[in-house]
Write a protein that binds this DNA or RNA. Structure first.
Lengths: 215, 215
DNA sequence: ACCAAGATAGTGATTGATTACTACCTTAAT
DNA sequence: ATTAAGGTAGTAATCAATCACTATCTTGGT
């Protein structure tokens, strides 16, 4: 998409502090996808924005502060996307499906996110980062398990389903798809793989149409 | 487990070249688990073995060569473990289950492996590393898909199962469990989570006992 | 059996490159 | 004119890699 640093706003420099902060977060995620989370230097960020490295530190006190801001941005955006998708569901399983594809689409647009969240280099050092990641993970799993429990109550999911384990499998499904698209770069389109994989997952969840067919 | 470098062989230094190479691979994986793949320095390796940093480069031409050796070690060991587990299976689904738990156990003993294989910092630069990882992934997926196809032929798995998608879900399941045990360090035992999650996966695979009961 | 000669493994110091971060100066926009 | 955003030019630390040298082991000729 771009071999040269940035030509989006050729002349325009001197952004407001808020806009510059947002752009730093944006290019950080972009670079993290291109070259790996731990190889993003403040110099890289500056070049990608067309400013000098020193300018970065006018807006963030430290590099860790940048990563913290990135994670907070991810948390806020992800939760908003998932919440919006789930709200449109007609029933718990429909909501689950919408969340899944919304999540895949979101990550397809920001492929570095899983790596940022799982980078030991980040949450291995800074306690605040670690807590933020844990919060996101547990919150997400609870949301899935909750939907599954609702589905059980409505007779849509197996009564004997281990909802916690099923939530683990759900998150693994997302993670596995991300992994594939990351390692087999471009060779497979994550959205198509996702569309094939979700029905398999549903088989594990859904109440089977048994002898008695209702309605 | 150890606050001081190493006391296994207190006086013994001067290992043979082969032994030293193996030890470098060993401590590299250990350190990658402790501090993250990209934060393992050659100095760290040397300290963990009780030698000086320069000694490391007598046995490997570069740091990339060390990671290549680590990945080859992982490939060889993993394939051996999986092959052995699968060979004991009485039928394809039994083999699948044995492979799953063997994989989980292997990774529980070497928690850094998934991170090594998925580190962009590694396979983003070196073409040989990237190819090795791709080879491992595709080979693994083909193995799973093959077992599932066999299971279909024997009437153990759904006839309409998308075996490729099911293999993706399988790998995701492993990945998700690793992710959880990595982020929620110690808070959950990966083996117990695995034992709960696999049955859910099986539900998606297994031929359902329909109206007609065979035998 | 001996031991000199070569081979091998490890040391310690250093290199150049890269890193996050800082102090001070300049300029554009209101 | 003020001031916030960006530029310039550093610093100290860390990194992989190199190199001259030393310690230890192995071996072949006598």
């Amino acid at each position: 998409m771009s071999s040269e640093p940035e030509f989006n706003q050729p002349q325009r420099k001197r952004l407001g502090a808020d806009e510059r902060r947002e752009e730093i977060i944006r290019v950080t995620l972009e670079l993290a996808d291109k070259q790996g989370v731990d190889d993003v230097t403040t110099q890289d960020m500056a070049e990608a924005m067309g400013v000098t490295q020193g300018a970065v530190f006018r807006h963030f006190a430290s590099k860790d502060a940048i990563w913290l801001a990135v994670m907070q941005w991810v948390r806020d955006r992800l939760m908003a996307v998932l919440g919006h998708a789930a709200a449109q569901g007609r029933d718990p399983l429909d909501a689950l499906q919408r969340m899944f594809f919304a999540h895949i689409e979101f990550i397809a647009g920001h492929p570095a996110i899983p790596r940022v969240l799982t980078s030991r280099h980040l949450h291995g050092r800074n306690a605040m980062l670690r807590q933020l990641v844990t919060e996101i993970m547990l919150g997400y799993e609870a949301k899935i398990a909750g939907l599954l429990t609702d589905a059980q109550a409505q007779g849509l999911a197996r009564a004997d389903l281990d909802t916690h384990a099923a939530a683990t499998l759900y998150i693994g499904m997302v993670q596995g798809l991300v992994l594939q698209s990351s390692i087999l770069r471009g060779r497979r389109a994550i959205e198509k793989e996702a569309a094939r994989t979700f029905p398999v997952y549903l088989q594990a969840i859904r109440q089977q149409p048994s002898q008695e067919s209702p309605s």
